[in-house]
Amino acid sequence: MSKLKNCIEGLVITLLGGFFLYLAFSVRSNPIPYGSAWINTLAQAKFLPVVMASFVTILGIVMIVMGLKGKMTPAKFDKGEPLRLLIVVVLVAAYLLGINYFGFRWPTVAFSVISAVYFNWKKRPWWQMLIIAAVYIVVGLFALPKLIGLRLV
């Protein structure tokens, strides 16, 4: 069972390589051909992408073999880490996607308040959390854009 677990990473890389190969082969051929057949193959826009995708696929297979031999150990998550990771990723994703739809102002205010409260919950009094959120907002929405002369949307 542990050997199978060790192979998962290699399997994911092989699948990734396969996806890359699919993308590489879907690139259309050059509109203007060059010289002989093999020169034309080397000069194709898809040539190096196919080579790189093939390398990734081969390396994925190598990783599967290494996993079966026990030479590839997967990363371990600490207790509580997956949940915290999920929350962090969701928070960051919501912030960045929020900017994409609503502009910088309100998503930054919301992100600042939520992150100041969530990451400091039970560690700091509420007024410190508010100050931290205020600092994030002032620096993010006013000081930094002013410094670089950027007009935020």
Partner: peptide, 17 residues
């Protein structure tokens, strides 16, 4: 926990800029 969230904001502004 105090430092990292502001780096997220910096990253967003830097990328947009």
């Amino acid at each position: 926990n105090v430092l990292m969230p502001i780096i997220v904001i910096f990253c967003a502004i830097g990328s947009y800029a």
